[in-house]
Design a protein around this nucleic acid. Sequence first.
DNA 1: TTGAAAGCGCTAACAG
DNA 2: CTGTTAGCGCTTTCAA
Lengths: 341, 341
Amino acid sequence: MNLKTLANHLGLSQTTVSRALNGYSDVSLATRNRVAEAAKTYGYRPNVNARRLATGRSSVIGIAFPTDMNMFLDPHFIEFLTGLSEKASELDYDIMISSSQSEEVDVYRRFAEKGTVDLVILSNVDLSEERIRLLQDLNMPFIVHGRTATCDSYSYIDIDNYGVFHEPAKMLLEMGHDKIAILNGHPNRVYAIDRFNGWQDALKERGVTPNPDYVRAGAMSEENGYTFAMEILQLEDRPTALLCSSVVMAKGTYRACNELGIKIGSEVSIVAHDDNVPLAQAADMDPPLTVTRSPLRDAGREIAIMAMNYLKGTDIKELQCLWHPELIFRKSVGAPPRSST
Amino acid sequence: MNLKTLANHLGLSQTTVSRALNGYSDVSLATRNRVAEAAKTYGYRPNVNARRLATGRSSVIGIAFPTDMNMFLDPHFIEFLTGLSEKASELDYDIMISSSQSEEVDVYRRFAEKGTVDLVILSNVDLSEERIRLLQDLNMPFIVHGRTATCDSYSYIDIDNYGVFHEPAKMLLEMGHDKIAILNGHPNRVYAIDRFNGWQDALKERGVTPNPDYVRAGAMSEENGYTFAMEILQLEDRPTALLCSSVVMAKGTYRACNELGIKIGSEVSIVAHDDNVPLAQAADMDPPLTVTRSPLRDAGREIAIMAMNYLKGTDIKELQCLWHPELIFRKSVGAPPRSST
DNA sequence: TTGAAAGCGCTAACAG
DNA sequence: CTGTTAGCGCTTTCAA
């Protein structure tokens, strides 16, 4: 069943039927209903490719599937992708993934040349602006998950990563902690740099000198959480509080604490950023983990909406979101142990 | 630059240029070369949507992105998807992912109705034939990663999962082990059932009665590997050998062994199936892990090729692959400890 | 070996 | 409010 035969059945022109179906205003309510009903009974589905050809739009969002070894296992990326994919379906957009064995920029170049996608999503931004510049040069619409220095010039969604470590650090300092360590994400990622600065500034604001021994960074895996915590908690002068970049990492630190017989919440306080990945539920941990919370899946969903608006012509300035995670206080945080004061 | 203007530049008809570019035989070598060169210098790219409309084919492969909580973190699925995506790019196919918050069958129904994909890939098959029947009813081409009882009727790629546990079990039995436990994958997945049968038969063939206490099944995570191993290795009558469904799981069993002070390779022998996921390298473990090996990424790549052939009209009977993993012997396996004979 | 012409199924000016 | 008329850019008979 195509437009033409549907129109014939109704005794209307293709145009009218098309407009009725696409919700244009200049169609009488009567015919609009008649058309809608007929479309349903005949099970009419517009041919996507014909529409794409006619409009020049594909309603497809592209995303590069990272081939970088460390990324593969990263539940955070998958969580984001899930939200994006869910919401995109609801909005009748499709998601196309692509990976190349070589450079990620090749993927964008291919997207642009082929013209199969209307817009691409950029994830995992680092300090280099290479991919962003390329997309701007190619004139390919894009939205960034994260930010770089030139974020004024494009649409993005990000969380206040500075605050992600600054807020809990401030809180811990006020509680009397002054030996605060951080287990950060990959050091060349912008979010990790922001978090580092948040931590550093919080200390400096209270006149505490940041201790470089208290800084670790790497992929946010359980394993790294464990390894980093084992190192840091066995330092001569061990910290009384730990800031983790993810709950997955925090699970590793819990394991380290248990192995070392260090009581969480009294002997050491732990705070993590919570992306709300399903298999790492902060509230179910023992003791329940204090977090700054901002679900990655929500970010994925939001970016799908932003993509739609971008393609509808909304101004870039209106498509720059900065979310502020909420601080959720739980039992993994307590006053610093006496011995350390 | 489109076909028309390119043809004008060359002083040829669109038809000839199109045929030259698509490698039809009835074009003189001279013009063929001339066209190829012009296309390159002008940077001509055929419009995908126009082609799709004209041919009725999209060259897009669809795959349902699992929303099931346990799947999210599963590095095995991602590894497979990576191979698929890589090879698809090379073959000039695109990969579309879709997820629904409700049922996975909805995704397939949407794919079929919309007509955006030529073929879908089915992963993680369980005993139910529901998805398969739906796709057959919808007349939507598909290839299965795995097999079900009715696998004669469709195209698939699978490994000999029966052998994955049967072979190493036989080997261990021949070495004198008779207390062999299995840490299996999710119990309703077909591959897990096949592996279970392989283990069971190997024992029975040697006159050993399978011990139900020696069977554990669940998601193939490090955590489960650890938990299951902790349980099984603290049994009154503990096994002398462990068969794991994945290297990720085996990492958990290694951790359990270390914690319990059990020497791997002498006090307990461990074998796992190796999908070759990047962050779980069996050869780098201590001691190096004995495995049955069959890279998931290769399966993904192969399925992309199969999809192409399917769409080119190759008969289903020619598109049924069964791979036999190789057994790689390493230090994690040794003779059973004396005390147990 | 090449070209003319007719679609593929939809959208969108433009008229009425 | 509805219809007429061109396309969108490619493939593919059919004729020459």
